[in-house]
Amino acid sequence: MINSYTRFAASTLVLQVLTIAISGAFVLKHFPPIHVMNGVIAIIIAALLLKAKWKWTPVFGILYGLLFSILTVPSFVITMFRPIDPAYNAMREASNPFFGISFLTALLVLTVLISSVAGLLVNLGKITEGPSWFPKLKAAIYGAAAMALLTSIYLQLHWVTGINATTVEQLPTLVMKSDSMEPPAMEITEGEPIVLRIINESDNACHILSFPELDASVHMERDRTGLLVIDPEPGTYTYQCKAHHDYVNENIKGVLTVNPK
């Protein structure tokens, strides 16, 4: 028993797969295991909703909606007001493409949940199918999905730092290579706080460069530049790749020496 609500849930799942593909290719520039799992499950459930005629089939969409609502919606809401991880606070950065993708994912999983519940209720004879406002709701969801994807891709291509490019180029620079750190050692003199420019040229196996002894770190995806301000006392400090979502390269590391005046 396939009704309009069930078909809508299936089409929303396809949109979810498209969102995962676009965010992995253009925004994240990699595909974390949780996103791959999300996409595979979404495709399987979409096929079931479109092909299986059992009246309880919408339960699969409900289970998907519940699972991924728990995984995505609370984290999206929380990061709008405070950081979950001090080293990864991308949601609160200006002009960040993660916002559109995260909002869209939260919207889609909730839509799958609600439409699957409605589809099950229709199959059980609890509600009627096809209210007049339903086509407008579908159009709004599709429109929101298109706008979120286009906005996220645009922001990815036009990431704004709000800092003059020439100024940034003159800063002390650390470059994360595919399997090393450049330079592997750096020396500075104590005094004023220092701003470091950090460039991620790795194969995206490392997203966060950390100074563990200084409790300082900065998050960047591949081909992106980050800034970090430190004000260390004289001594020796390490800078290294910090594990994030199982992405880490232990060869990306170096030593910072702070000399006294």
Score class of each variant (00 low, 15 high):
residue 213 E to Y: 05
residue 245 H to F: 12
residue 77 V to N: 09
residue 179 D to M: 12
residue 8 F to W: 15
residue 121 L to C: 10
residue 150 L to Y: 00
residue 226 G to Y: 08
residue 94 A to C: 12
residue 36 V to F: 12
residue 180 S to D: 11
residue 23 S to Y: 01
residue 30 H to T: 13
residue 72 T to C: 04
residue 191 G to W: 08
residue 68 F to Q: 01
residue 110 L to M: 14
residue 3 N to T: 08
residue 9 A to F: 03
residue 254 G to E: 01
residue 39 G to R: 01
residue 73 V to K: 02
residue 250 E to N: 14
residue 225 T to A: 11
residue 110 L to R: 04
residue 177 K to C: 01
residue 208 I to Q: 02
residue 241 C to L: 04
residue 44 I to D: 01
residue 185 A to W: 03
residue 159 W to Y: 15
residue 116 S to E: 08
residue 65 G to C: 08
residue 75 S to A: 15
residue 198 I to E: 00
residue 229 V to H: 07
residue 225 T to Y: 03
residue 192 E to G: 11
residue 17 V to G: 05
residue 238 T to S: 12
residue 228 L to F: 08
residue 113 L to Y: 03
residue 156 Q to H: 06
residue 140 A to P: 05
residue 21 A to T: 09
residue 6 T to Y: 03
residue 117 V to T: 07
residue 62 I to K: 05
residue 129 E to Q: 14
residue 60 F to N: 01
residue 73 V to W: 01
residue 31 F to Q: 03
residue 92 R to T: 12
residue 224 R to A: 05
residue 115 S to P: 01
residue 198 I to N: 04
residue 173 T to F: 03
residue 21 A to P: 01
residue 193 P to R: 02
residue 87 A to G: 13
residue 152 S to D: 02
residue 104 L to F: 08
residue 234 P to F: 09
residue 138 K to V: 05
residue 220 M to Y: 00
residue 160 V to P: 01
residue 10 A to V: 07
residue 42 A to M: 00
residue 244 H to N: 10
residue 189 T to H: 15
residue 255 V to K: 09
residue 244 H to D: 12
residue 195 V to L: 11
residue 177 K to T: 09
residue 113 L to M: 07
residue 161 T to H: 12
residue 142 Y to F: 15
residue 13 L to M: 10
residue 145 A to M: 09
residue 94 A to F: 15
residue 137 L to I: 13
residue 84 I to L: 11
residue 107 L to Y: 05
residue 23 S to R: 05
residue 197 R to Y: 05
residue 130 G to A: 14
residue 108 L to S: 03
residue 236 T to G: 05
residue 249 N to K: 08
residue 230 I to W: 02
residue 144 A to I: 13
residue 54 W to E: 15
residue 128 T to E: 15
residue 159 W to A: 11
residue 127 I to N: 02
residue 170 Q to A: 14
residue 35 H to F: 14
residue 139 A to M: 11
residue 208 I to A: 04
residue 57 T to C: 11
residue 55 K to T: 15
residue 165 A to D: 14
residue 16 Q to N: 15
residue 186 M to P: 08
residue 78 I to Y: 04
residue 220 M to F: 02
residue 194 I to K: 00
residue 15 L to S: 09
residue 55 K to A: 11
residue 165 A to N: 10
residue 84 I to F: 10
residue 105 T to V: 14
residue 152 S to W: 06
